[in-house]
Simulated assay, not measured.
Amino acid sequence: MFHDKKIVAVIPARAGSKGIPNKNIVDVNGNPLIVYTINAALESRYIDRIYVSTDSIEIADVCRAHGVEVERLRPQHLATDEAKTIDVLKYTLHSLQSQNEIYDYVVLLQPTQPLRSCVHIDEAISLIAAHEDASIISVSEVEDHPLFMRKINESGKLESLLQTSSTVRRQDLPIYYKVNGAIYINKVSDIVTQDISLNDNKIPYVMDKKYDLDVDTLADLEKLRWLLK
């Protein structure tokens, strides 16, 4: 609980994964990948309840073995490649409300961002104190500046992404951030009653980019194993 606000963390973990088979429970230095996110949530000072949304009995068993109960499996229509995370959140929160479990805020924690810690989670939650009605999202400074990025138009010519001159000293470049997918915080009432785009949450929680690793490929997985050593 934070400032008398009840907080539920939702960890989405479906079984299907094309790049890395069984990605959410693949072994990473002795632990299933999802366990790094479970441990961060368990160590949070402010999270009142952890809910893992999964369609997999195997994933559910792993979660139970590491201290998080999984009461029911996600329906199959929310476990396809086309299923949206926001719909999973809506379903989960409605299910909790039907059991008379009422929360003020939901924290979405994707298991593919395992370097995010309980400190990051609690620092992000603490932003609620100043932005009670706002939506919060974790971001990291970009590696490659968008001022030097181009797209090829229909005529085969390069076009700048930013409509400004790229003749500028690097030390004078404005800082740009990317959504890193590690932490999303929203009011439960907003999720269940509105059409929300999580990536458009407004209040930034800035994380050092050294903690930004989204495990999507085998190369990402090997990098994670190396970093955790």
Rank of each mutant, 00 (worst) to 15 (best):
H131D: 05
S135C: 10
H120Q: 11
L109Q: 06
L33I: 06
T92V: 13
P12Y: 02
K84D: 11
Y105P: 04
A130L: 15
D4G: 06
D27C: 06
V142I: 15
K178F: 09
R45A: 09
I175E: 15
D214E: 03
D133V: 12
M1T: 15
V35H: 00
L115R: 06
L115G: 07
L78I: 12
A219T: 08
L33G: 00
V142W: 09
L162C: 08
L224N: 00
N29D: 08
H145R: 14
Q194S: 13
V106E: 01
R14N: 11
S197Q: 11
Y176A: 08
L108D: 05
D200N: 13
L161C: 05
S197E: 10
I196P: 00
G30P: 05
V139A: 09
I25F: 02
D214P: 00
L89Q: 02
P146D: 13
V8H: 01
R45E: 14
K90H: 10
V62Q: 03
G67E: 04
I136S: 04
V35S: 01
I20P: 00
Q113M: 12
I20S: 03
I11T: 02
R49D: 11
A65I: 08
K209M: 08
T92G: 07
Q110S: 13
Y51M: 11
N201E: 01
N24A: 11
Y184G: 00
S155T: 14
Y184W: 08
E123C: 13
P146V: 14
E143S: 13
E123G: 14
D81P: 03
A130P: 04
R116W: 04
T193D: 12
K84Y: 10
A130E: 15
V26W: 00
E43W: 07
S53C: 14
Y184H: 09
R170S: 12
V192I: 15
S98P: 02
Y46W: 10
Y36R: 03
L161H: 03
L109I: 12
H145F: 09
E132Y: 08
E101Q: 15
I59D: 01
R170W: 09
V88N: 06
V8C: 04
